[in-house]
Write a protein that binds this DNA or RNA. Sequence first.
RNA 1: GGCCGGAUGGUAGAGUGGUUAUACACUUGAUUGCAAAUCAAUGAAUCUCGGUUCGAUUCCGGGUCCGGCCUCCA
Length: 464
Amino acid sequence: MAIQIYNSQSKQKEVFKPIHAPKVGMYVCGITVYDYCHIGHARVMVCFDVIVRHLRARGYDVNYVRNITDIDDKIIARAIENGESTQALTERFIKAMHEDEDALQVLRPNVEPKATDYIHQITDMVQTLVEKGYAYPAANGDVYFRVEKFADYGKLSGKKIEDLQSGARVDVNEQKESPLDFVLWKASKPSEPHWHSPWGEGRPGWHIECSAMSKHTIGEHLDIHGGGHDLQFPHHENEIAQSECAHGHTYVNTWMHVGFVNVDNEKMSKSLGNFFTIRDVLKKYPAEVIRFFLLSSHYRNPLNYTTENLDNARAALRRLYGALEGVQQLPPSASLVAQWTDAYNAAMDDDFNTPQAFAVLFDLVTELNKAKAAKDVNSMGQLAQLLVSLANQLGLLTSEPSTFLQLGSGSSDLSEADIQAKIDARIAAKQAKDFARADAIRNELKDEGIEILDTPQGTTWRRV
RNA sequence: GGCCGGAUGGUAGAGUGGUUAUACACUUGAUUGCAAAUCAAUGAAUCUCGGUUCGAUUCCGGGUCCGGCCUCCA
């Protein structure tokens, strides 16, 4: 069964065929590091993390590259605002980004190239484009890409050059031959960070860094290139123009774009100011709940950020962990593994359908709970281990069940020892048939946000 | 204005040319000292108007509404 991936360029699912199987070259546009990452960034990180994990689980040797934009207008502006160097600013936020990713169980890409480490490769590529006539230096020291020279311009986003020209939303810039032309190299003011180039002191334009860095970390022809949906145009369109004109052949086979996280059904974005940072949300919800939430909708669809949806994710995750609680895991039989792994892979092979994969996990939970009810120690042990191993492929169920279930938002002062003492007292009361006392203790705990569960394996507790 | 995507039960969210997942919530039964958890059963949806078809939620066309891109954005 082959993996099918929806290609944004062809607008349909295609059978995935790497250029040099089993190797896969995959490049994802990362973030511009001048602020903390928000939940929209988290979605892109988590979705591509799951995509890479699944490709690897299916036997591919994935070279996963995700860049870091560490020089641009906003970085310069923020650094001036803060009275610090751009380097100090970007290093701080790269560190913060890694902390957020680690919390969300996002595996690091193989390479995280930074634009400022590839200036030479960038100027080389700009030089090539100038030599081939696809780019031109302007009088002020900028270098622009000549969009009309590239016949395929618009093939990714479905836009036509004529439509774009009449759109009139492009900057009027005297330096450009055409308003659609975009900057490859920007002349810098003396006070700004700058690098030497054949066209004078300056810094790279945004789009060119990805063309240059993908070439030098993967190659001229990528299997997969991804990013947020808003990058499709103009960023990815411009990358295609640069790379295909510089190299003279196809740049990317499969384009993947992750849908937005919305707030009140509107795109969450820094410019709209309606964003929630990952670290803000981590104060309110366990990281795993956030990860589950981000994967609960298909990656291409919009995802609405609401407390209801986060709470729902938490409740769903509690069902998964609840099934594992008190079960001694056992190695599953080959037939059991085949049955459930096939179902799981069928979901994930179909354009990484995580909601469908979740459904498989929950079906497995139902079987596991049945086995628990029947006290079938052998079945439940095998099903539990299978559940954990499949969920682990999604970066989920990586905690001990009791650890997750006892995490809470409640602000109880009770220590675990206090809780255990009350539970012991209640058990004693129950044995003495003093149910009024037992219930009183249970209510005391409930007021503290602690829920008591009497199970065949003994009394356990969790936070509400 | 140009281009693109979406509309599924109370909520979230998949698949499917015929019998529609899964989760949360609701109802009933079993279980429990009573609960909780769990199991079982039940209820509950495919925006609208046409077309193709024996049959459309699914395919095609029109409409309505929502969102995105066209300017920095994940």
